[in-house]
Simulated scan of single mutants.
Amino acid sequence: MTIVVETSGSSGKPKRVIISDEAVQASTEAAIERLGGPGQWVLALPEQYIAGKNVIWRNAVSGAPLVRTEGAFTAEAFVEAVQSLEHERKYTSLVPTQLARLVDAAALDRSFIGPIARLDRILLGGQRAPFGLIERAARLGWRVTRTYGATETVGGCVWDGRPLRDVKLRLTDQIEIAGPQLADGYDDPALTEQRFVVDGSGTRWYKTGDAGSLISGLLQVSGRIDDVINSGGIKVSLAAVEHVVQTFAPDAVVVAAPHPEWGEVPAVVTTLKPSLAEIRAAVGNALGKPARPNHLVTVSVMPTTASGKPDRKRLTRLVASRTQERRRRGLFG
């Protein structure tokens, strides 16, 4: 049997992914093996997406009741859910936005620290974690594991840079993944043929669209291969810029903004108020002058998709509108 799971569509049009029972079983068994055994889980993610479904599938192996957080994600509701766990092993999966809220809440109220430290593992995925977030969580005694994967790989199949059992990696012009956890494809045959390829030995690979490298045998993901802009003839990785910017604003998202002379330039969106001059200096030192952001857009609330990821499409439209308005004021104001 198969199920169809839709991707979140945070950087493009959502895709409908066809996943077999065998792929789900392979993913679940490999994850539980890496965790050290089955346990009871807190579900704090939307269950229609693959990360939430993985929580449900992995919890089912333990036979314990699944614990859900109710309503909007808050530190209080999450801690209450964690405290209700009764199994000897306790787990959860979060996205970085949620972990950041917990870390910030613990800085204001230390009573949150202990209950979350009872979790044997917090799996963190969905997007790149802001600079320093995992280190801040570790200082609280929280056990966080970075996961990397996609709906097409039944979620995270590389943990802290190391593939799960039977998962294979190779680097071509992008990261490619093989293994029994691969989806069958999409409900679009042409897209399936484009993203799932078979090599000469008969091994089937999923082309992730992400750039990365292997450092001391560990996978390092550097960003989307299409997340590169041409700014005045120079290629600039928005993911690399974002990584530097997050030292000043941990929630920052960097998107492309139109520019009348350079074509496109990096723009920063954040709920905080960092210094654009300091950001430009740091990015220039790390990545070169063409990578320096030209715009800083402050929002009261960071827009996210239903899965909790920053809504980059919406942010790109917002930045384009704001920069256009600023140019208009410069011309006519």
Rank of each mutant, 00 (worst) to 15 (best):
E86Y: 00
E88Y: 11
E88T: 10
R89K: 12
L94R: 08
L94T: 07
L94H: 09
V95T: 04
L99N: 06
A100M: 15
L102E: 10
D104V: 13
D104M: 14
L108H: 12
L108A: 15
D109E: 14
D109N: 15
F112G: 03
G114E: 15
I116W: 11
R121Q: 14
R121M: 14
G125I: 07
G126T: 08
G126M: 05
Q127T: 07
Q127N: 05
R128K: 12
L133K: 02
E135N: 02
R136D: 03
A138E: 13
R139S: 13
G141E: 04
G141K: 08
R143L: 00
T145F: 09
Y148H: 05
G149K: 02
A150W: 04
E152A: 04
G155S: 06
G155T: 12
V158D: 07
P163S: 11
L164C: 05
R165T: 12
D166Y: 10
V167M: 14
K168D: 14
K168R: 15
R170A: 08
E176L: 07
I177T: 10
A178S: 15
A178T: 04
P180F: 03
L182Y: 03
A183L: 05
Y186D: 00
Y186S: 08
D187H: 11
D188P: 05
D188N: 13
A190T: 08
E193P: 06
G200I: 01
S201I: 01
G202F: 00
T203V: 14
R204K: 14
R204I: 05
T208Y: 12
I215G: 01
G217F: 10
L218G: 00
L218P: 05
L218D: 07
Q220K: 05
S222F: 00
